[in-house]
Design a binder for these strands. Structure first.
Lengths: 249, 249
DNA sequence: TTGTTTTTGATTGATTTTGATTGAAAAATG
DNA sequence: CATTTTTCAATCAAAATCAATCAAAAACAA
Protein backbone atom coordinates (compact mmCIF):
# COMPACT_ATOMS: atom_id res chain seq x y z
CA UNK A 1 0.00 0.00 0.00
CA UNK A 2 1.40 3.35 -1.05
CA UNK A 3 1.91 6.14 1.41
CA UNK A 4 -0.87 8.47 0.20
CA UNK A 5 -3.28 5.55 0.17
CA UNK A 6 -2.34 4.69 3.71
CA UNK A 7 -2.90 8.26 4.77
CA UNK A 8 -6.33 8.23 3.19
CA UNK A 9 -7.17 4.99 4.93
CA UNK A 10 -6.17 6.44 8.27
CA UNK A 11 -8.15 9.64 7.78
CA UNK A 12 -11.20 7.78 6.56
CA UNK A 13 -11.18 5.49 9.55
CA UNK A 14 -10.81 8.47 11.83
CA UNK A 15 -13.67 10.27 10.16
CA UNK A 16 -15.94 7.35 10.98
CA UNK A 17 -14.77 6.54 14.46
CA UNK A 18 -13.57 9.89 15.88
CA UNK A 19 -10.80 8.10 17.70
CA UNK A 20 -8.83 5.08 16.58
CA UNK A 21 -6.27 2.78 18.20
CA UNK A 22 -2.89 1.95 16.89
CA UNK A 23 -3.76 -1.71 16.47
CA UNK A 24 -6.79 -0.92 14.33
CA UNK A 25 -4.69 1.22 12.06
CA UNK A 26 -1.99 -1.42 11.74
CA UNK A 27 -4.60 -3.91 10.60
CA UNK A 28 -6.52 -1.54 8.35
CA UNK A 29 -3.42 -0.35 6.55
CA UNK A 30 -1.61 -3.67 6.72
CA UNK A 31 1.57 -1.94 7.74
CA UNK A 32 3.88 -2.07 10.70
CA UNK A 33 3.46 -0.07 13.82
CA UNK A 34 6.52 2.00 13.00
CA UNK A 35 5.10 2.99 9.66
CA UNK A 36 1.77 3.98 11.13
CA UNK A 37 3.60 6.00 13.73
CA UNK A 38 5.44 7.87 11.03
CA UNK A 39 2.17 8.45 9.20
CA UNK A 40 0.52 9.80 12.30
CA UNK A 41 3.41 12.15 12.98
CA UNK A 42 3.20 13.45 9.45
CA UNK A 43 -0.57 13.83 9.46
CA UNK A 44 -0.45 15.63 12.75
CA UNK A 45 2.16 17.95 11.33
CA UNK A 46 -0.27 18.59 8.48
CA UNK A 47 -2.95 19.34 11.09
CA UNK A 48 -5.16 16.60 9.69
CA UNK A 49 -5.51 14.81 13.02
CA UNK A 50 -4.41 14.82 16.61
CA UNK A 51 -2.14 12.15 17.98
CA UNK A 52 -3.02 10.77 21.37
CA UNK A 53 -1.41 8.13 23.48
CA UNK A 54 -2.48 4.82 21.96
CA UNK A 55 -3.63 6.13 18.60
CA UNK A 56 -5.18 9.25 17.12
CA UNK A 57 -8.29 11.36 17.29
CA UNK A 58 -9.87 13.87 14.96
CA UNK A 59 -9.19 17.53 15.58
CA UNK A 60 -11.81 18.73 18.01
CA UNK A 61 -12.81 21.65 15.81
CA UNK A 62 -14.01 19.26 13.16
CA UNK A 63 -15.61 16.86 15.60
CA UNK A 64 -18.45 19.10 16.58
CA UNK A 65 -19.74 22.63 16.50
CA UNK A 66 -18.23 24.36 19.49
CA UNK A 67 -20.44 25.90 22.09
CA UNK A 68 -19.34 29.20 23.51
CA UNK A 69 -18.16 27.47 26.64
CA UNK A 70 -16.10 25.04 24.65
CA UNK A 71 -14.66 27.73 22.44
CA UNK A 72 -13.30 29.32 25.56
CA UNK A 73 -11.36 26.20 26.38
CA UNK A 74 -9.66 25.80 23.03
CA UNK A 75 -6.04 26.78 23.54
CA UNK A 76 -6.95 27.76 27.07
CA UNK A 77 -3.41 27.57 28.39
CA UNK A 78 -2.11 29.73 25.56
CA UNK A 79 -4.88 32.25 26.06
CA UNK A 80 -4.21 32.42 29.77
CA UNK A 81 -0.52 32.99 29.22
CA UNK A 82 -1.27 35.78 26.77
CA UNK A 83 -3.91 37.25 29.06
CA UNK A 84 -1.63 37.18 32.07
CA UNK A 85 1.08 39.09 30.33
CA UNK A 86 -1.41 41.55 28.84
CA UNK A 87 -2.84 42.25 32.28
CA UNK A 88 0.65 42.85 33.64
CA UNK A 89 0.90 45.88 31.34
CA UNK A 90 -2.02 47.55 33.06
CA UNK A 91 -1.05 50.14 35.69
CA UNK A 92 -2.97 51.23 38.71
CA UNK A 93 -5.42 53.94 37.74
CA UNK A 94 -5.50 53.04 34.03
CA UNK A 95 -8.62 53.24 31.94
CA UNK A 96 -8.63 50.36 29.51
CA UNK A 97 -10.76 48.92 26.74
CA UNK A 98 -11.31 45.18 26.64
CA UNK A 99 -12.55 43.82 23.35
CA UNK A 100 -15.16 41.07 23.30
CA UNK A 101 -13.43 37.70 23.20
CA UNK A 102 -12.22 34.74 25.15
CA UNK A 103 -8.63 35.91 25.56
CA UNK A 104 -9.60 39.29 26.95
CA UNK A 105 -11.99 37.42 29.23
CA UNK A 106 -9.05 35.59 30.74
CA UNK A 107 -7.42 38.91 31.64
CA UNK A 108 -10.09 39.75 34.19
CA UNK A 109 -8.83 37.76 37.18
CA UNK A 110 -5.41 39.35 36.77
CA UNK A 111 -6.94 42.82 36.80
CA UNK A 112 -8.86 42.36 40.00
CA UNK A 113 -6.09 43.59 42.26
CA UNK A 114 -5.59 46.80 40.35
CA UNK A 115 -7.56 49.97 40.51
CA UNK A 116 -8.72 50.05 36.91
CA UNK A 117 -11.68 51.28 34.96
CA UNK A 118 -12.75 48.94 32.20
CA UNK A 119 -14.84 49.69 29.13
CA UNK A 120 -15.94 46.71 27.06
CA UNK A 121 -18.21 45.71 24.21
CA UNK A 122 -18.19 42.08 25.30
CA UNK A 123 -21.34 41.07 27.12
CA UNK A 124 -19.72 37.84 28.25
CA UNK A 125 -17.20 39.85 30.22
CA UNK A 126 -19.69 41.92 32.18
CA UNK A 127 -20.75 39.34 34.71
CA UNK A 128 -17.18 38.48 35.60
CA UNK A 129 -15.95 42.08 35.63
CA UNK A 130 -18.64 43.25 38.02
CA UNK A 131 -18.20 40.05 40.00
CA UNK A 132 -14.58 41.06 40.64
CA UNK A 133 -15.83 44.49 41.65
CA UNK A 134 -14.09 46.22 38.79
CA UNK A 135 -15.59 49.52 37.73
CA UNK A 136 -17.18 48.62 34.42
CA UNK A 137 -18.70 50.56 31.54
CA UNK A 138 -20.49 48.85 28.71
CA UNK A 139 -20.52 50.12 25.15
CA UNK A 140 -24.02 50.78 23.80
CA UNK A 141 -25.38 49.50 20.50
CA UNK A 142 -26.68 46.48 18.65
CA UNK A 143 -25.98 43.06 20.03
CA UNK A 144 -24.49 40.48 17.73
CA UNK A 145 -25.91 37.25 18.97
CA UNK A 146 -23.20 34.87 17.87
CA UNK A 147 -20.28 36.59 19.52
CA UNK A 148 -22.24 38.40 22.23
CA UNK A 149 -20.50 41.60 21.25
CA UNK A 150 -21.91 45.09 20.92
CA UNK A 151 -21.25 46.41 17.43
CA UNK A 152 -22.33 48.88 14.78
CA UNK A 153 -22.53 52.64 14.40
CA UNK A 154 -24.05 53.22 17.82
CA UNK A 155 -21.25 51.29 19.43
CA UNK A 156 -18.71 53.50 17.72
CA UNK A 157 -20.55 56.63 18.87
CA UNK A 158 -20.83 55.25 22.36
CA UNK A 159 -17.13 54.47 22.46
CA UNK A 160 -16.24 58.05 21.63
CA UNK A 161 -17.37 59.10 25.07
CA UNK A 162 -14.18 57.57 26.40
CA UNK A 163 -10.41 57.74 26.17
CA UNK A 164 -8.18 54.82 27.06
CA UNK A 165 -4.68 54.45 28.38
CA UNK A 166 -4.51 51.03 26.77
CA UNK A 167 -6.79 48.82 24.77
CA UNK A 168 -6.63 45.08 24.27
CA UNK A 169 -8.13 43.62 21.13
CA UNK A 170 -8.76 40.13 19.82
CA UNK A 171 -8.27 39.53 16.14
CA UNK A 172 -8.78 36.88 13.46
CA UNK A 173 -5.99 37.61 11.01
CA UNK A 174 -2.49 39.03 11.41
CA UNK A 175 -0.61 39.54 8.16
CA UNK A 176 2.51 41.60 7.44
CA UNK A 177 1.00 43.36 4.42
CA UNK A 178 -2.74 43.32 5.13
CA UNK A 179 -2.41 44.12 8.82
CA UNK A 180 -4.99 43.10 11.41
CA UNK A 181 -8.24 41.80 9.97
CA UNK A 182 -11.52 40.36 11.25
CA UNK A 183 -14.47 38.88 9.33
CA UNK A 184 -17.25 41.27 10.39
CA UNK A 185 -16.87 44.91 9.21
CA UNK A 186 -19.09 46.12 12.03
CA UNK A 187 -16.80 44.51 14.55
CA UNK A 188 -13.78 45.84 12.72
CA UNK A 189 -14.92 49.44 12.99
CA UNK A 190 -15.44 49.07 16.73
CA UNK A 191 -11.92 47.71 17.16
CA UNK A 192 -10.53 50.44 14.97
CA UNK A 193 -12.29 53.13 16.98
CA UNK A 194 -11.04 51.71 20.25
CA UNK A 195 -7.52 51.73 18.84
CA UNK A 196 -7.81 55.37 17.82
CA UNK A 197 -9.01 56.33 21.28
CA UNK A 198 -6.14 54.54 23.03
CA UNK A 199 -2.70 55.63 24.02
CA UNK A 200 -1.43 52.14 23.29
CA UNK A 201 -3.12 49.16 21.70
CA UNK A 202 -2.22 45.51 22.09
CA UNK A 203 -3.46 42.73 19.85
CA UNK A 204 -3.85 39.39 21.59
CA UNK A 205 -3.28 36.72 18.97
CA UNK A 206 -2.60 33.04 19.41
CA UNK A 207 -0.44 31.32 16.85
CA UNK A 208 -3.35 30.25 14.62
CA UNK A 209 -4.02 33.85 13.62
CA UNK A 210 -0.72 34.60 11.91
CA UNK A 211 -0.47 35.01 8.16
CA UNK A 212 -4.25 34.78 7.96
CA UNK A 213 -6.28 37.42 6.14
CA UNK A 214 -10.00 37.93 6.72
CA UNK A 215 -12.48 40.38 5.24
CA UNK A 216 -12.39 43.62 7.19
CA UNK A 217 -9.26 45.55 8.02
CA UNK A 218 -8.79 46.94 11.52
CA UNK A 219 -5.34 48.50 11.31
CA UNK A 220 -1.80 48.15 9.99
CA UNK A 221 0.62 46.04 11.94
CA UNK A 222 2.56 49.15 12.95
CA UNK A 223 -0.42 50.58 14.77
CA UNK A 224 -0.51 48.09 17.63
CA UNK A 225 1.70 45.83 19.66
CA UNK A 226 1.26 42.07 19.50
CA UNK A 227 1.13 39.61 22.38
CA UNK A 228 1.29 36.02 21.28
CA UNK A 229 2.42 32.48 22.00
CA UNK A 230 3.47 31.94 18.39
CA UNK A 231 6.70 30.04 17.79
CA UNK A 232 9.83 31.91 16.77
CA UNK A 233 9.80 30.91 13.13
CA UNK A 234 6.73 32.93 12.13
CA UNK A 235 7.41 36.04 14.15
CA UNK A 236 10.59 37.74 12.83
CA UNK A 237 8.81 39.54 10.02
CA UNK A 238 6.34 41.01 12.49
CA UNK A 239 9.07 42.01 14.88
CA UNK A 240 10.44 44.31 12.22
CA UNK A 241 7.11 46.16 12.11
CA UNK A 242 5.99 46.48 15.70
CA UNK A 243 6.56 45.51 19.29
CA UNK A 244 5.98 41.77 19.72
CA UNK A 245 5.90 40.00 23.07
CA UNK A 246 6.11 36.24 23.02
CA UNK A 247 4.74 34.31 25.97
CA UNK A 248 4.95 30.62 26.69
CA UNK A 249 2.07 28.73 28.29
CA UNK B 1 -10.64 3.10 25.14
CA UNK B 2 -8.48 6.07 24.25
CA UNK B 3 -8.33 9.17 26.36
CA UNK B 4 -10.32 11.52 24.09
CA UNK B 5 -13.01 8.90 23.68
CA UNK B 6 -13.24 8.53 27.43
CA UNK B 7 -13.51 12.27 27.83
CA UNK B 8 -16.30 12.35 25.29
CA UNK B 9 -18.09 9.54 27.07
CA UNK B 10 -17.90 11.40 30.34
CA UNK B 11 -19.11 14.67 28.87
CA UNK B 12 -21.91 13.00 26.98
CA UNK B 13 -23.13 11.21 30.07
CA UNK B 14 -22.97 14.45 31.98
CA UNK B 15 -24.87 16.26 29.30
CA UNK B 16 -27.72 13.79 29.68
CA UNK B 17 -27.79 13.43 33.41
CA UNK B 18 -26.54 16.81 34.69
CA UNK B 19 -24.73 15.08 37.51
CA UNK B 20 -23.02 11.72 37.50
CA UNK B 21 -21.45 9.43 40.11
CA UNK B 22 -17.98 8.05 40.09
CA UNK B 23 -19.23 4.50 39.81
CA UNK B 24 -21.34 5.25 36.76
CA UNK B 25 -18.37 6.78 35.01
CA UNK B 26 -16.12 3.86 35.90
CA UNK B 27 -18.62 1.49 34.30
CA UNK B 28 -19.45 3.66 31.32
CA UNK B 29 -15.81 4.19 30.42
CA UNK B 30 -14.67 0.77 31.53
CA UNK B 31 -11.69 2.29 33.30
CA UNK B 32 -10.39 2.38 36.83
CA UNK B 33 -11.42 4.91 39.41
CA UNK B 34 -7.94 6.45 39.34
CA UNK B 35 -8.18 7.04 35.63
CA UNK B 36 -11.60 8.60 35.86
CA UNK B 37 -10.36 10.83 38.64
CA UNK B 38 -7.54 12.00 36.46
CA UNK B 39 -9.96 12.61 33.62
CA UNK B 40 -12.23 14.63 35.85
CA UNK B 41 -9.34 16.74 37.08
CA UNK B 42 -8.31 17.43 33.52
CA UNK B 43 -11.80 18.22 32.31
CA UNK B 44 -12.37 20.51 35.24
CA UNK B 45 -9.11 22.26 34.40
CA UNK B 46 -10.49 22.65 30.91
CA UNK B 47 -13.66 24.06 32.42
CA UNK B 48 -15.80 21.43 30.76
CA UNK B 49 -17.36 20.30 34.01
CA UNK B 50 -17.35 20.82 37.72
CA UNK B 51 -16.07 18.18 40.09
CA UNK B 52 -18.18 17.46 43.13
CA UNK B 53 -17.70 15.05 45.97
CA UNK B 54 -18.62 11.66 44.59
CA UNK B 55 -18.58 12.54 40.92
CA UNK B 56 -19.09 15.50 38.63
CA UNK B 57 -21.74 17.95 37.51
CA UNK B 58 -22.21 20.20 34.52
CA UNK B 59 -20.93 23.74 34.76
CA UNK B 60 -23.56 25.72 36.53
CA UNK B 61 -24.73 28.25 34.03
CA UNK B 62 -27.96 26.63 35.13
CA UNK B 63 -27.39 27.12 38.85
CA UNK B 64 -26.47 30.78 38.45
CA UNK B 65 -29.65 31.17 36.49
CA UNK B 66 -31.42 29.63 39.42
CA UNK B 67 -30.30 32.17 42.00
CA UNK B 68 -31.40 34.91 39.68
CA UNK B 69 -34.53 32.96 39.07
CA UNK B 70 -35.18 32.76 42.77
CA UNK B 71 -34.97 36.49 43.15
CA UNK B 72 -37.46 36.82 40.38
CA UNK B 73 -40.01 34.58 42.03
CA UNK B 74 -40.99 37.13 44.64
CA UNK B 75 -44.47 38.16 43.61
CA UNK B 76 -43.89 36.22 40.46
CA UNK B 77 -47.53 35.68 39.60
CA UNK B 78 -48.30 39.37 39.97
CA UNK B 79 -45.30 40.34 37.94
CA UNK B 80 -46.21 37.92 35.21
CA UNK B 81 -49.75 39.20 35.02
CA UNK B 82 -48.48 42.76 34.72
CA UNK B 83 -45.85 41.74 32.19
CA UNK B 84 -48.31 39.81 30.07
CA UNK B 85 -50.65 42.74 29.77
CA UNK B 86 -47.80 45.15 29.11
CA UNK B 87 -46.51 42.93 26.33
CA UNK B 88 -49.99 42.83 24.78
CA UNK B 89 -49.70 46.55 24.15
CA UNK B 90 -46.72 46.05 21.89
CA UNK B 91 -47.51 46.03 18.17
CA UNK B 92 -45.68 44.32 15.39
CA UNK B 93 -42.88 46.56 14.20
CA UNK B 94 -42.67 48.60 17.41
CA UNK B 95 -39.42 49.84 18.84
CA UNK B 96 -39.62 49.67 22.61
CA UNK B 97 -37.51 50.44 25.65
CA UNK B 98 -37.42 47.91 28.48
CA UNK B 99 -36.14 49.22 31.78
CA UNK B 100 -33.91 47.04 33.94
CA UNK B 101 -36.00 45.04 36.36
CA UNK B 102 -37.69 41.76 37.07
CA UNK B 103 -41.12 42.73 35.78
CA UNK B 104 -39.86 43.92 32.43
CA UNK B 105 -37.86 40.69 32.31
CA UNK B 106 -41.11 38.73 32.45
CA UNK B 107 -42.35 40.54 29.36
CA UNK B 108 -39.76 38.93 27.13
CA UNK B 109 -41.44 35.57 26.46
CA UNK B 110 -44.60 37.38 25.42
CA UNK B 111 -42.64 39.50 22.97
CA UNK B 112 -41.00 36.62 21.22
CA UNK B 113 -43.71 36.15 18.62
CA UNK B 114 -43.70 39.78 17.58
CA UNK B 115 -41.38 41.57 15.27
CA UNK B 116 -40.00 44.08 17.75
CA UNK B 117 -36.79 45.96 18.33
CA UNK B 118 -35.85 46.23 21.98
CA UNK B 119 -33.51 48.69 23.64
CA UNK B 120 -32.66 48.05 27.27
CA UNK B 121 -30.38 49.16 30.06
CA UNK B 122 -30.91 45.91 31.95
CA UNK B 123 -28.03 43.50 31.60
CA UNK B 124 -30.08 40.68 33.07
CA UNK B 125 -32.45 40.92 30.15
CA UNK B 126 -29.85 40.60 27.42
CA UNK B 127 -29.26 36.89 27.57
CA UNK B 128 -32.95 36.10 27.41
CA UNK B 129 -33.73 38.68 24.73
CA UNK B 130 -31.06 37.40 22.39
CA UNK B 131 -32.02 33.88 23.32
CA UNK B 132 -35.50 34.53 21.96
CA UNK B 133 -33.89 35.95 18.86
CA UNK B 134 -35.25 39.42 19.48
CA UNK B 135 -33.29 42.25 17.89
CA UNK B 136 -31.62 43.83 20.89
CA UNK B 137 -29.71 47.03 21.54
CA UNK B 138 -27.99 47.71 24.81
CA UNK B 139 -27.57 51.14 26.33
CA UNK B 140 -23.95 52.13 26.96
CA UNK B 141 -22.60 53.49 30.22
CA UNK B 142 -21.59 52.63 33.74
CA UNK B 143 -22.80 49.40 35.24
CA UNK B 144 -24.44 49.54 38.62
CA UNK B 145 -23.53 46.26 40.18
CA UNK B 146 -26.45 45.79 42.49
CA UNK B 147 -29.22 46.12 39.97
CA UNK B 148 -27.20 45.11 36.90
CA UNK B 149 -28.44 48.23 35.18
CA UNK B 150 -26.60 50.65 32.92
CA UNK B 151 -26.88 54.16 34.33
CA UNK B 152 -25.35 57.61 34.41
CA UNK B 153 -24.66 60.42 31.97
CA UNK B 154 -23.29 58.13 29.30
CA UNK B 155 -26.40 56.02 29.43
CA UNK B 156 -28.53 59.09 28.85
CA UNK B 157 -26.38 60.13 25.90
CA UNK B 158 -26.47 56.62 24.53
CA UNK B 159 -30.26 56.49 24.83
CA UNK B 160 -30.64 59.62 22.75
CA UNK B 161 -29.59 57.67 19.70
CA UNK B 162 -33.04 56.08 19.74
CA UNK B 163 -36.75 56.86 19.61
CA UNK B 164 -39.37 54.52 21.02
CA UNK B 165 -42.96 53.77 20.22
CA UNK B 166 -43.43 52.65 23.79
CA UNK B 167 -41.32 52.31 26.88
CA UNK B 168 -41.90 50.16 29.95
CA UNK B 169 -40.37 51.26 33.23
CA UNK B 170 -40.10 49.78 36.67
CA UNK B 171 -40.41 52.12 39.63
CA UNK B 172 -40.06 52.25 43.41
CA UNK B 173 -42.57 54.92 44.42
CA UNK B 174 -45.89 56.02 42.95
CA UNK B 175 -47.48 59.01 44.68
CA UNK B 176 -50.28 61.33 43.51
CA UNK B 177 -48.35 64.51 44.32
CA UNK B 178 -44.71 63.47 44.08
CA UNK B 179 -45.18 61.37 40.99
CA UNK B 180 -42.91 58.43 40.09
CA UNK B 181 -39.76 58.19 42.19
CA UNK B 182 -36.78 55.88 42.51
CA UNK B 183 -33.92 55.90 45.04
CA UNK B 184 -30.95 56.37 42.70
CA UNK B 185 -30.81 59.71 40.83
CA UNK B 186 -28.65 58.19 38.13
CA UNK B 187 -31.28 55.56 37.46
CA UNK B 188 -33.99 58.18 37.60
CA UNK B 189 -32.44 60.26 34.87
CA UNK B 190 -32.22 57.23 32.61
CA UNK B 191 -35.89 56.43 33.12
CA UNK B 192 -36.80 60.08 32.57
CA UNK B 193 -34.85 60.18 29.34
CA UNK B 194 -36.50 57.02 28.06
CA UNK B 195 -39.87 58.50 28.84
CA UNK B 196 -39.09 61.66 26.93
CA UNK B 197 -37.99 59.64 23.91
CA UNK B 198 -41.16 57.53 23.87
CA UNK B 199 -44.50 58.00 22.25
CA UNK B 200 -46.13 56.32 25.25
CA UNK B 201 -44.71 55.22 28.57
CA UNK B 202 -46.06 52.60 30.94
CA UNK B 203 -45.04 52.20 34.54
CA UNK B 204 -45.14 48.64 35.79
CA UNK B 205 -45.85 48.80 39.52
CA UNK B 206 -47.01 46.11 41.87
CA UNK B 207 -49.20 47.10 44.79
CA UNK B 208 -46.33 47.64 47.23
CA UNK B 209 -45.14 50.71 45.32
CA UNK B 210 -48.20 52.90 45.74
CA UNK B 211 -48.17 55.98 47.96
CA UNK B 212 -44.44 55.49 48.44
CA UNK B 213 -41.97 58.31 47.86
CA UNK B 214 -38.27 57.75 47.28
CA UNK B 215 -35.41 60.14 46.62
CA UNK B 216 -35.27 60.91 42.94
CA UNK B 217 -38.18 61.98 40.80
CA UNK B 218 -38.68 60.46 37.39
CA UNK B 219 -41.91 62.09 36.22
CA UNK B 220 -45.35 63.28 37.20
CA UNK B 221 -48.16 60.76 37.31
CA UNK B 222 -49.77 62.37 34.27
CA UNK B 223 -46.74 61.62 32.12
CA UNK B 224 -47.15 57.84 32.00
CA UNK B 225 -49.72 55.09 32.17
CA UNK B 226 -49.74 52.61 35.03
CA UNK B 227 -50.11 48.86 34.87
CA UNK B 228 -50.64 47.23 38.23
CA UNK B 229 -52.25 44.48 40.24
CA UNK B 230 -53.10 46.89 43.08
CA UNK B 231 -56.51 46.51 44.71
CA UNK B 232 -59.31 48.91 43.87
CA UNK B 233 -59.22 50.89 47.09
CA UNK B 234 -55.88 52.59 46.48
CA UNK B 235 -56.28 53.29 42.80
CA UNK B 236 -59.14 55.81 42.29
CA UNK B 237 -56.97 58.83 42.97
CA UNK B 238 -54.49 57.72 40.33
CA UNK B 239 -57.21 56.98 37.83
CA UNK B 240 -58.11 60.63 37.88
CA UNK B 241 -54.61 61.54 36.82
CA UNK B 242 -53.69 59.00 34.18
CA UNK B 243 -54.59 55.78 32.42
CA UNK B 244 -54.47 52.87 34.86
CA UNK B 245 -54.83 49.24 33.89
CA UNK B 246 -55.51 46.77 36.65
CA UNK B 247 -54.59 43.15 36.09
CA UNK B 248 -55.30 40.16 38.28
CA UNK B 249 -52.83 37.33 38.59
C1' DT C 1 24.20 -3.99 -13.19
C1' DT C 2 25.85 -1.23 -9.20
C1' DG C 3 25.63 2.28 -6.05
C1' DT C 4 22.54 5.54 -3.72
C1' DT C 5 18.47 7.05 -1.57
C1' DT C 6 14.09 6.15 0.51
C1' DT C 7 10.96 3.47 2.90
C1' DT C 8 10.00 -0.02 5.98
C1' DG C 9 9.87 -3.06 10.11
C1' DA C 10 12.17 -4.79 14.20
C1' DT C 11 14.46 -3.66 18.47
C1' DT C 12 15.41 -1.18 22.58
C1' DG C 13 15.46 1.93 26.26
C1' DA C 14 12.64 5.93 27.66
C1' DT C 15 8.20 7.90 28.55
C1' DT C 16 3.41 7.87 29.49
C1' DT C 17 -0.60 5.90 31.10
C1' DT C 18 -2.82 3.03 34.13
C1' DG C 19 -4.77 0.66 38.28
C1' DA C 20 -3.96 -0.71 43.02
C1' DT C 21 -2.86 0.93 47.51
C1' DT C 22 -2.51 4.06 51.20
C1' DG C 23 -3.37 7.54 54.64
C1' DA C 24 -5.92 11.94 54.70
C1' DA C 25 -10.10 14.51 54.11
C1' DA C 26 -14.93 14.91 53.69
C1' DA C 27 -19.60 13.41 54.23
C1' DA C 28 -22.89 10.55 56.57
C1' DT C 29 -24.55 8.43 60.62
C1' DG C 30 -26.01 7.71 65.19
C1' DC D 1 -19.80 15.52 68.50
C1' DA D 2 -17.62 11.28 68.04
C1' DT D 3 -17.70 7.40 65.00
C1' DT D 4 -18.25 5.20 60.77
C1' DT D 5 -18.32 5.25 55.92
C1' DT D 6 -17.24 7.13 51.72
C1' DT D 7 -14.48 9.64 48.76
C1' DC D 8 -10.22 11.88 47.77
C1' DA D 9 -5.22 12.91 46.47
C1' DA D 10 -0.72 11.10 46.36
C1' DT D 11 2.33 7.51 45.39
C1' DC D 12 4.26 3.65 43.05
C1' DA D 13 5.02 -0.33 40.23
C1' DA D 14 3.32 -2.65 36.15
C1' DA D 15 1.76 -2.30 31.59
C1' DA D 16 1.30 0.01 27.41
C1' DT D 17 2.99 3.05 24.24
C1' DC D 18 6.42 5.93 22.32
C1' DA D 19 10.67 7.92 19.90
C1' DA D 20 15.07 6.80 18.32
C1' DT D 21 17.98 3.83 15.96
C1' DC D 22 19.52 0.68 12.62
C1' DA D 23 19.65 -2.80 9.23
C1' DA D 24 16.98 -4.96 5.53
C1' DA D 25 14.04 -4.24 1.63
C1' DA D 26 12.39 -1.51 -2.01
C1' DA D 27 12.65 2.16 -5.22
C1' DC D 28 15.45 4.84 -7.90
C1' DA D 29 19.37 6.56 -10.81
C1' DA D 30 23.53 6.01 -13.27
Amino acid sequence: MLTPERHQTILKLLQDKKTVKMKELVEAANASESTIRRDLSYLEEQRKLRRVHGGASIKSAASEELSLQEKKTVHLAEKQAIAKYAASLVRDGDSIFLDAGSTTYEMIPYLSQKNVLVVTNGLSLLETLTGYDIETYVVGGRIKRKTRAVIGAHAVESLKHYRFDKSFLGINGVHPKEGFTTPDPEEAVVKKTALQLSGETFILADSSKFNEITFAKVADIREAGIISDAPDDILPIFKELTEVKVVTP
